[in-house]
């Protein structure tokens, strides 16, 4: 897998994502937001952080970056695009994913491990998980409260585009397990064609037991092996 990790001014999880790709045997490159052209990559990853300081609105300025035209084209051509945290916010701002990520219901930044339930195991990103599996993954965001209008929510649910939900230790979608107030405990969604995934939690931080969890590894290995199958 040749993966482009797009760095915007203010991205701060680009390095972590780069290392995660390397760990699963992929080839990662940093692509500065003013560069152009993504044709040579198999996947495009938008990292977390605070692009442009989250000034104005998280992701609102980054989505104007020159590279974003290419990201949109890459996605529209069916390319695999993964946005994590700020990357998810940018994907929503860019219109590649529906809805918006607004201020956490608690009104404060939330940084802790959460549990996620895997809702789909037939996407490019999740074939390595089992359906209903509970993952332990950190979150770290102030604006991760997923909102969308009723029709969009219904559409997401009926089309099965919710890939991850916040759950408690028992795997239930309780209110207490929801760290930011997201509708339907939504932690991650795909676009209609399933090639674009946005998620608030950080699988790239769950790659080693030393750091607390290895539950993110399967996401990157899934992506790598699915892309390998597609190219062959």
């Amino acid at each position: 897998m040749r993966a482009a990790v797009v760095t915007f001014p203010g991205s701060n999880c680009d390095y972590d994502l780069y290392k995660a790709i390397q760990q699963v045997g992929g080839e990662a490159s940093f692509v500065w937001h003013r560069e152009r052209g993504l044709e040579s990559y198999d996947a495009v990853l938008l990292p977390g952080g605070f692009s442009y300081g989250d000034y104005l609105r998280a992701g609102a300025i980054a989505r104007m970056s020159p590279i974003m035209e290419d990201v949109v084209e890459f996605a529209n051509n069916g390319g695999a695009v993964l946005g994590i945290c700020n990357g998810f916010q940018i994907l929503c701002e860019a219109g590649l994913l529906p809805g918006a990520l607004v201020r956490n219901a608690s009104l404060s930044f939330q940084s802790k491990d959460v549990r996620l339930r895997v809702e789909r195991t037939d996407t490019l990103f999740t074939t390595g998980y089992t359906l209903g599996q509970t993952l332990r993954v950190p979150i770290a965001h102030g604006e991760g409260n997923y909102e969308a209008d009723q029709r969009t929510l219904e559409q997401l649910e009926t089309e099965g585009r919710v890939v991850f939900r916040y759950v408690d230790q028992a795997g239930e979608t309780t209110e207490d397990a929801n760290p930011n107030g997201s509708w339907h405990n939504i932690a991650g969604i795909t676009n209609a064609t399933g090639n674009v995934l946005g998620m608030m939690p950080h699988p790239e931080r769950s790659m080693e037991q030393l750091l607390g969890s290895v539950d993110g590894v399967a996401l990157f290995t899934s992506l790598g092996s699915n892309l390998a199958m597609l190219t062959n």
Binding site: G48, S111, P138
Partner: peptide, 16 residues
């Protein structure tokens, strides 16, 4: 307090 601080960015925090 520390739930308001990012403690895991840079993927090196072995003890939070």
């Amino acid at each position: 307090i520390y739930h308001q601080y990012d403690t895991t960015v840079r993927t090196a925090t072995a003890v939070r």
